[in-house]
Amino acid sequence: MSGPLHPQISLYAAIATRSFRRYSTYTAATLAGIFTNSVFGIILSFAYLALWEQNPSAGGYEADQAVTFVWIGQALLMTVALWSGGSTDDLAERIRTGDIAVDLYRPVSVLGWYLAADLGRGLYHFTTRGVAPAIVGALLFGLVTPSPAGAAGFLVSVVLAVVVSFAVRFLFAASAFWLLDATGPRVLLSVLATFFSGLTLPLNLFPDGLRQVALALPFASYIQTPADIWLGRHTGLDMIAAIGLQVLWAVVLLATCALVLRAATRKVVVQGG
């Protein structure tokens, strides 16, 4: 982290830009993904509507808020690379093949590199696979729109969602340094993230006890926190506290990533000749 700030920022901006461009070359995949997200969104919306008819204002959400929650979930699913598709997939693969050696030979922070790449990717996925299905949802169901402060808070919260999710994925991918293959941990992570991010059901609907735990976990940063800010459930100081918790997780997890990476390069052999 030595040297002037400016070249560092310009480097990471360049990495993020290239990463954005890299994903944008696969147009067909993006279109297929938008279609899938939209179909998922429609199915979940009808399920939620049925549920909320039985139990109006479940978890403190009105039916239109619940449907909006679904589409925010679909919009952020790829943005935070909840199941896969982030720069951390490249990391796991490069550890497995030993190509990570090439990254380590460079006079640049490996953690900063992959984070910048993931932010570039996240921006691409947000503007395509995030925005497009949300428009479909808005046209079909009519979504709740946020206040200007809510919209601004939402965008900040989404950036933090990508950072937190990146750090969690980085830790799971880095397990490949010791396990040689990170497929198992990645499956476990997908299950945890699906359940605890709010993707399947808003965390506020969880029973007492589990709810408090789930809301405190880093996975809540993925979807639950940005969605609640969009829906106006966190405003004023409450919004700052919610974003503050995301910042805290981001800092703690990134610091852990740095330590793990250092331990890995000290102790562990880069695979292959």
């Binding site: 070249p7 310009s10 480097l11 360049a14 990495i15 290239r18 461009r21 890299r22 070359t25 093949t97 030993g98 190509d99 050696a101 090439v102 030979y105």
Partner: peptide, 19 residues
């Protein structure tokens, strides 16, 4: 192994290395 970026043109890889 390659130190180039798989999905990018050579020019872009060199531009990143410059930085």
């Amino acid at each position: 192994r390659t130190s180039l970026w798989w999905d990018l043109p050579l020019r872009d890889s060199y531009e990143l290395l410059r930085r």
